[in-house]
């Protein structure tokens, strides 16, 4: 058997792949955060709670309406997206002109309220959600046993990430969004409804979080704290990638997943810390993040 640095090769390859899978979640969540920060200037601390809502809506669709995983994959982001739309219209829109801190406080408070409500109704140990029958089972890759569902998560995440990137960088809508970020009054003068664009952007970012939530539901237990477990790491990913950088979020999301995966082999105790060590180093060397531009 090949060994690399004293670790058997198959184990190492397995960990690399697992890192990629976790990276997929980091990428999807940090992407939504990045889009929202880039266009709205809001540090959306409620992102984790909305991710959790995505998973819960999937669970509710199944248990109250009998709609399975594939329906949930479409409907849950839509429902949570509409919820995000309402949040933006009623609360968040009042904060654009204020300091970042206010947005952070509001969304942090919202996260606590949403998580509290779900905990009150559904308890803290969570709800079971099965893997859809089409994706059950696993494939033997020779060096590891890859559950088909995990393979699907990486694939779906890549599609979602690239789709978002294309939408923002290559379409007319994306061009308008970017223009509105640079100079809102001017874009409005051309007859574009900027507040509506901003609302839709927030809803879109939230829908992305809910989509990740549905993907996560069969892997982790659907519980009210599932978002807060992720959110700190995801913020670190956004900071490392560069606040507001779309490509930065995607690339750092996946690569930090891999770094974390490798740490789990060599020194497991540090696996929760390694991302923050990377963050500290990046902030020292490149304060705007790896892909960020200094304002």
């Amino acid at each position: 058997m090949i060994t690399i640095l004293g670790v058997p090769g198959p184990l190492l390859f397995g960990q690399l792949l697992l890192g990629l899978i976790n990276g997929a979640f980091y990428a999807m969540l940090s992407l939504g955060l990045s889009v929202i920060f880039g266009l709205l200037n809001i540090i959306n601390f409620a992102h984790g709670a909305l991710f959790m809502m995505g998973a819960f809506v999937a669970w509710m669709l199944l248990n109250y309406l009998g709609l399975g995983y594939w329906w949930a994959l479409v409907l849950s982001p839509l429902i949570v997206g509409i919820f995000g739309l309402i949040l933006e219209r009623t609360l968040i829109k009042h904060l654009y002109k204020l300091d970042h801190l206010y947005g952070l406080l509001l969304t942090f408070g919202l996260a606590l309220v949403i998580e509290g409500l779900f905990r009150n109704k559904y308890g803290s140990s969570g709800m079971p959600y099965q893997i859809p029958p089409e994706l059950e089972g696993a494939t033997n890759l020779g060096f590891m046993f890859l559950p088909n569902y995990r393979g699907w998560v990486v694939f779906a995440a890549l599609i979602a990430c690239l789709g978002t990137w294309l939408l923002i960088e290559k379409t007319k809508l994306g061009a308008l969004l970017r223009a509105a970020t640079e100079n809102a009054p001017l874009v409005q003068a051309f007859g574009v409804n900027v507040p509506r664009l901003v609302t839709l952007t927030y809803a879109g970012g939230v829908a992305l979080a809910a989509f990740a939530g549905v993907l996560a539901a069969p892997i982790y237990s659907v519980n009210p704290n599932m978002g807060s477990n992720f959110i700190n790491t995801v913020f670190a990913v956004v900071v490392i990638g560069g606040m507001g950088s779309i490509m930065g979020s995607i690339v750092t999301g996946f690569s930090l997943g891999v770094i974390e995966g490798l740490t789990k082999v060599f020194y497991p105790q540090a696996s929760e810390t390694v991302i923050f060590v990377v963050m500290a180093i990046v902030l020292l060397a490149r304060p705007a993040g790896l892909f960020g531009r200094t304002a």
């Binding site: 697992l18 789990k264 082999v265 497991p268 696996s271």
Partner: peptide
């Protein structure tokens, strides 16, 4: 044995694979 960070670990698959190995 393997020590997993607490709290905050959500993905245990790599530890499980080490256990299996």
């Amino acid at each position: 044995s393997v020590n997993t960070p607490f709290p905050g670990t959500t993905d245990f698959s790599s530890y499980l694979l080490q256990a299996q190995a």
